[in-house]
C-alpha cells in the first residue's frame, strides 16, 4: 500500500471516529433538553481541532518511505478526483445548512449541519480515493 493510500485510510478513519465521539456526546446532552440551551460551540471546536491534529499526528506516525518517492502523478490524479467528488458533497451540505438558516432554525442545527457537511466531505473523498487506489483509476 502506497504512502498516499495510507493517508487516505487515516483520513477516512479520523472522519468516522472523531464525529462519532462528538455525536455520542451531543446525543447525551440532547435528551430532554431544549437545543437552544445546549452549549455545543466548545465541543464542536474541540471535535474539529482533534480531527485536524489526529490527521497530522497519524500521518507523521505512518511516516513517508525513505529513499523512494512517496507521491507521483497517479497520487495527484487520485487526490484531485477524490477532492472533486468531495466538493459536491460539501456543496450539498452547505446548501442544506443555508436552507436551515433561511428556515430560521436554531444555531445548534445550522452549526452541526455545517460540521456534518465537512465530515461527509472528508469521508466521501477518502473513500473515493481508496476505491480509486484499489480498483483502478
Amino acid at each position: 500500500m502506497s504512502y498516499e493510500e495510507k493517508r487516505a485510510w487515516v483520513y477516512a478513519a479520523v472522519a468516522v471516529v472523531v464525529p462519532v465521539v462528538y455525536a455520542v456526546t451531543m446525543f447525551g446532552r440532547l435528551a430532554g433538553t431544549d437545543v437552544a440551551q445546549i452549549s455545543y460551540a466548545l465541543p464542536l471546536l474541540i471535535a474539529a481541532g482533534v480531527g485536524i491534529v489526529a490527521n497530522i499526528l497519524t500521518t507523521m506516525l505512518i511516516g513517508a518511505p525513505k529513499g523512494a518517492r512517496h507521491s507521483d502523478e497517479r497520487d495527484a490524479d487520485i487526490f484531485r478526483y477524490g477532492t472533486h467528488v468531495g466538493y459536491f458533497v460539501l456543496a450539498t451540505g452547505v446548501g442544506g445548512a443555508f436552507l436551515l438558516t433561511l428556515a430560521g432554525v436554531t444555531h445548534f442545527w445550522i452549526a452541526n449541519a455545517l460540521y456534518l457537511a465537512f465530515v461527509l466531505d472528508a469521508l466521501v473523498s477518502s473513500i473515493v480515493k481508496i476505491v480509486a487506489y484499489r480498483r483502478g483509476f
Binding site: R69, H70, D75
Partner: peptide, 10 residues
C-alpha cells in the same frame, strides 16, 4: 519506478 521517477505502486 526509480528510473521513471514514480512509486512502485504506480
Amino acid at each position: 519506478a526509480a528510473r521513471v521517477g514514480v512509486t512502485r505502486q504506480t
